[in-house]
């Protein structure tokens, strides 16, 4: 409970005693590059395979002859947009980017780099954490779009190569009864998860106490807490926006 309180105080500190716009802009760009390089490969790999596997699994389960083939790609589309691209990827994002944010800040804390900033009168929360959160809000939705496309593409490639579904059928299924709110919904979720992962991980890292061992513990806790927060937020958003 006390921790939730200090989390909100921490968020409040983001905007106190701000650095100049130019400095912040530079820091944000640096973080964006870091996040992108950190996660793009894993995102492409995982989402392509999940798309492919979903296609095969769906085809395997739909053996009734009266169900048309395009239902397969329709299912892949819905799965991808609703859960896979925003939510499953958020869990991977927490594991990859969140843990590295916590580790990075934790190391800076125990090696007194954060103190060094504060002695110079810099608000370390603003200087170190705000760029991470802003960069995350910018990069994660992009990564979700990439992951979604890769997943659909993965399904297409496997579906066509194994002869499960014809190219035209796959495309037809993707467009069949398409409701563009699902994309909006996926992006809303992406923003929410990006904020949760980056702020929670930074919070855990920023208040690390002790030594190298505790930095490791902070990283792990950052991932666990982020994942729990993602799942709760996922449920709440579904209730709120879809019900």
């Amino acid at each position: 409970m006390k921790e939730i309180g200090s989390y909100f105080i921490f968020l409040g500190n983001l905007f106190i005693n701000r650095e100049s716009f130019r400095t912040q802009y530079r820091l944000i760009v640096d973080e964006c590059v870091l996040i992108g390089l950190d996660s793009i490969f894993l995102f492409v790999l995982v989402s392509t395979f999940i798309g492919a596997v979903t296609t095969v699994q769906t085809a395997y389960n739909l053996i009734a002859p009266y169900i048309p083939n395009y239902v397969i790609s329709q299912v892949v589309r819905e799965m991808t947009l609703l859960e896979l691209a925003p939510t499953i990827m958020a869990i991977i994002y927490a594991g990859k980017v969140g843990s590295s944010m916590a580790g990075n800040l934790g190391t800076m804390r125990i090696t007194e780099q954060i103190d060094a900033l504060e002695v110079m009168g810099i608000n370390a929360v603003n200087y170190l954490v705000l760029p991470k959160i802003v960069a995350s809000l910018f990069m994660y939705p992009l990564l979700v779009i990439v992951a979604g496309s890769c997943s659909l593409l993965g399904g297409y490639i496997v579906g066509v190569l194994t002869g499960i579904i014809a190219p035209t059928e796959y495309i037809y299924g993707l467009r069949y009864l398409f409701n563009d709110f699902t994309v909006t919904f996926a992006l809303i979720k992406a923003f929410a998860f990006a904020f949760l992962v980056s702020s929670i991980s930074s919070f855990k890292g920023f208040y690390t106490k002790g030594g190298a061992l505790e930095v490791g513990i902070s990283s792990t806790k950052a991932v666990t807490t982020s994942v729990i927060a993602i799942l709760i937020a996922d449920y709440l958003l579904a209730q709120l926006l879809l019900a």
Partner: peptide
Amino acid sequence: FQGGALFD
């Protein structure tokens, strides 16, 4: 600082 605290 005790350990230098250089920005790594």
